[in-house]
Design a protein around this nucleic acid. Structure first.
Length: 577
RNA sequence: GCCGAAGUAGUUCAGUGGUAGAACGCUUUCUUGGUAAGAAAGAGGUCGUGGGUUCAAUUCCCACCUUCGGCUCCA
C-alpha cells in the first residue's frame, strides 16, 4: 500500500515536471490539470502550439534537464483569494476556475524550481528522483470532461521507480499492440470492414465465421439446456413499436432514420426486446409457465458517433447474444443466480477466469416504483452474496429502467472488458403492459430481465482474439491441422492423410506447395495453426505421420493414434465447459 | 460529434509539382529440400473520393469518406 502511495507521488510529480518543461518550451501555454492515473499520468494544456509527436521527445529532453537540476518540491499554504490573485496575474484561467470550485479557505501550492502549481500534493522530495519516464501520446480532451467546453491538449506519460519496471510496462504495451485484434484480423484473415460499405459494419471472413459458428452453436445448445427457448425476429420494424417502448424518444440519436414502407415509417432495429415482448404477448401466460425465457442471437444496428468506433469492440451493426426473461418478482433472485452461474460457466469455456463485477443501483432519473427498485436490488444482492463472487456497488449507475449487474472479463494481460450484462427492467413491462395470470386468476405485471452473456458476437470476438493473441485453442481454431509434404513424391499420401482427418470431422488442410519444409512450417506457425503434420518418405513407407505442436516436434504417430489424440483433446475442452 | 494524426500494390511501408518504388504475398520456372523464410522471372497501383490552384497535382489548397490516439458518449 505504501508503495502505491509512493508511486502515485512519483507519477504526480512527473506530471508537474512535464508541465514545467512544456511551459519552458512553449510559452503562452495555459495549465489545466495533471493528475496521476493508473499506469502513469497526464497533463492537460491549452497551448498556442499544436503538440506534435516529435514534440514529445523535445519535452522529454527538457524534463531530463529539470530532473538533473535536482529541484526540491516545496509547498506553501495561502488563502484561496491570494491564490486566485496569484494565478489570475499569471493568466492561468483554468487554475482560477479550479480555485472557485474549492470549498476550503486555504489551498496549497507546490513549487519545484521556477514552476509553481496549485496542488494538494503530496510530492516526492526532489525532481532528481524522477529517473525512468516516457511520454506516450498526445490527445484531445475536454476541459472538465465537458464536451460543451473547450478542448485541451493532453499529453500522456508514464514513470516508474526502476528501469526494469519501465521496460516491463513498455513491453506490455508492445505485447498489447501485437495482440491488437484489428491487426490480427488482417493477418489471420478473420474479418474486415470497408469504406464502401460504411464504418463499423463488420464482414466476417470464412475463418472468422468458423469461429463464430462454433460459438453460436455452443451458445444455442447451452441455452436450450438451460431452459431458454430460441426465437428469431425481423431486422426492421414499424416505428410504432419503438414509440411504445420509449426508445424512440429516449435514444433517438442511436436509432437510424426511418424508411418509408407503404407510407409507414419503419426503423432498423436497435434492440431485440420489443420483438421478444411481441412473442410473449401472443398468448396468455399462466404463473405456472414462468419464467419464460426467449433467447436470440439478434442483430441490431445503432448509430454510434464516428469517433467512438473501434475495431470489433465498438461497431454500428452487431449481434447481441440476447435473452429476455419474463418472471414474477419472487423469481428474480433465483433467475439472477441462474443467469450468473450460466454466464460464468460460459465465459470459463473461453478461458476467462477473472472478473470485475459491478452491481449498479438506482440512478437519479428512473422509472418504476421505489419499492420495486428496492426489492429488485435486494434480489440482485442476495443472489450475488450466494455466488460468493466479490462485487462492487456502482451507486446510481443503473439504467433508468432498472438496476443491473455488469461482468467485466479480464484477459491474460489483465485488461478488463465489458461484455456480460444482466439488467432488470421496470419500463418495458409497464409500457407494453405485459402480464401473467396468477393463482387467483388475476393479471399481474411481469418482471423482465434483459441479459447478454457475451455482449455481442463482434465485441466478444475482438476480446477473444486479443485474449488468445490469435492462437486459438484447438476447438476454436479455424484450421486445426495443416498437413505438409516434404517433397512431391509424398503428395498423394499427404492428400490421403488430409482426407482421413477431414472425414473424422477435423478441420485439416494440406500445404502441397512447391516449397521447402522449413518454409511451410514457418507459414503454418505464423498462421497460428495448432498442429502441423509432416509426411516425408519415412512416414509414407511406415504409413505414419510426424507432428508438431506449440513449436515443437512431438514425434511420430499412427494416423489413427493421431486422430484419437486430437479427438480426446477436443473432448476434454468441451467437458471443461 | 470534438481535438490531433494519417490514407501510395493483397499486406507492411518508402517517395515525388513532370502520372511511382521496396519487402513480403501472388503467378510461372528452376530446385525435391527432414522441423520457423532456396533461387530467378513475371503480373499487380484512378497514389481514399470529389472539387480548386497550376502548362502540369499522387504531391499544394478545400470539402467529404475511412482509419488511428484520445475526449465525450455507450440501452
Amino acid at each position: 500500500m505504501e508503495n502505491k502511495i509512493e508511486l502515485e507521488k512519483l507519477r504526480h510529480s512527473t506530471s508537474h515536471v512535464m508541465a514545467q518543461a512544456v511551459l519552458e518550451l512553449f510559452p503562452g501555454t495555459k495549465l489545466a490539470i495533471g493528475p496521476a492515473i493508473e499506469d502513469g499520468f497526464y497533463y492537460d494544456f491549452n497551448s498556442p502550439r499544436t503538440f506534435l509527436p516529435e514534440d514529445l521527445e523535445k519535452i522529454e529532453q527538457k524534463m531530463k534537464e529539470i530532473v538533473k537540476n535536482d529541484h526540491k518540491f516545496t509547498s506553501r499554504e495561502m488563502s484561496k483569494e491570494e491564490a486566485k490573485k496569484f494565478f489570475g496575474e499569471r493568466n492561468e484561467k483554468y487554475k482560477v476556475e479550479l480555485l472557485e470550485n474549492i470549498p476550503d479557505e486555504k489551498v496549497t501550492l507546490y513549487q519545484d524550481g521556477d514552476f509553481i502549481d496549485l496542488c494538494r500534493g503530496p510530492h516526492i522530495e526532489s525532481t532528481k528522483q524522477i529517473k525512468h519516464f516516457k511520454l506516450l501520446s498526445v490527445a484531445g480532451a475536454y476541459w472538465r470532461g465537458d464536451e460543451k467546453r473547450e478542448q485541451l491538449q493532453r499529453i500522456y506519460g508514464t514513470v516508474f521507480p526502476t528501469k526494469e519496471e519501465l521496460a516491463d510496462y513498455l513491453n506490455k504495451l508492445e505485447e498489447a499492440k501485437k495482440r491488437d485484434h484489428r491487426k490480427l484480423g488482417v493477418q489471420l484473415d478473420l474479418f474486415s470492414t470497408h469504406e464502401q460499405v460504411g464504418a463499423g459494419l463488420v464482414h466476417w471472413h470464412p475463418k472468422g465465421t468458423i469461429i463464430r459458428n462454433i460459438i453460436e452453436n455452443l451458445w444455442k445448445e447451452e441455452h436450450t439446456k438451460h431452459g431458454y427457448q430460441l426465437v428469431s425476429t425481423p431486422h426492421i420494424a414499424s416505428e410504432e413499436i419503438y414509440k411504445t417502448s420509449g426508445h424512440l424518444e429516449k435514444y433517438s440519436d442511436m436509432i437510424y432514420s426511418p424508411m418509408d414502407i407503404d407510407g409507414r415509417p419503419f426503423r432498423v432495429k436497435p434492440m431485440n426486446c420489443p420483438n421478444h415482448i411481441m412473442i410473449y404477448k401472443t398468448k396468455l401466460h399462466s404463473y405456472r409457465e414462468l419464467p419464460v425465457r426467449y433467447a436470440e442471437l439478434g442483430t441490431v444496428y445503432r448509430y454510434e458517433k464516428s469517433g467512438v468506433l473501434h475495431g470489433l469492440l465498438r461497431v454500428r451493426g452487431f449481434t447481441i447474444d440476447d435473452a429476455h426473461i419474463f418472471c414474477k418478482l419472487d423469481q428474480l433472485e433465483q433467475e439472477m443466480l441462474n443467469i450468473f452461474d450460466f454466464t460464468i460457466k460460459f465465459l470459463q469455456t473461453f478461458g476467462f477466469r477473472e472478473y470485475d463485477i459491478y452491481l449498479a443501483t438506482k440512478p437519479e432519473k428512473f422509472v418504476g416504483s421505489e419499492e420495486n427498485w428496492a426489492k429488485a436490488i435486494d434480489s440482485l444482492k442476495n443472489a450475488m452474496e450466494k455466488t460468493k463472487y466479490p462485487y462492487r456497488i456502482d451507486e446510481g449507475g443503473g439504467a433508468f429502467y432498472g438496476p443491473k449487474v455488469d461482468i467485466k472479463i479480464k484477459d491474460v494481460l489483465g485488461r478488463a472488458w465489458q461484455c456480460s450484462t444482466i439488467q432488470f427492467d421496470f419500463n418495458l413491462a409497464e409500457r407494453f403492459d405485459i402480464t401473467y395470470r396468477d393463482e387467483s386468476g388475476k393479471d399481474e405485471r411481469v418482471f423482465m430481465i434483459h441479459r447478454a452473456l457475451l455482449g455481442s458476437m463482434e465485441r466478444f470476438f475482438g476480446v477473444l482474439i486479443e485474449h488468445y493473441a490469435g492462437a486459438f485453442p484447438l476447438w476454436l481454431s479455424p484450421v486445426q491441422v495443416v498437413v505438409i509434404n516434404i517433397s512431391e513424391s509424398q503428395k498423394d499420401y499427404a492428400e490421403n492423410v488430409t482426407v482421413s482427418l477431414k472425414n473424422e470431422g477435423i478441420r485439416a488442410e494440406s500445404d502441397l506447395s512447391n516449397e521447402r519444409l522449413n518454409y511451410k512450417i514457418r507459414e503454418a506457425t505464423v498462421n497460428k495453426i495448432p498442429y502441423i503434420v509432416i509426411v516425408g518418405d519415412k512416414e509414407k513407407q511406415s504409413r505414419k505421420v510426424s507432428a508438431r505442436h506449440s513449436g515443437r516436434d512431438i514425434g511420430q504417430f499412427e494416423l489413427n493414434e493421431f486422430i484419437e489424440k486430437l479427438k480426446s483433446e477436443l473432448k476434454q475442452k468441451i467437458n471443461n465447459t
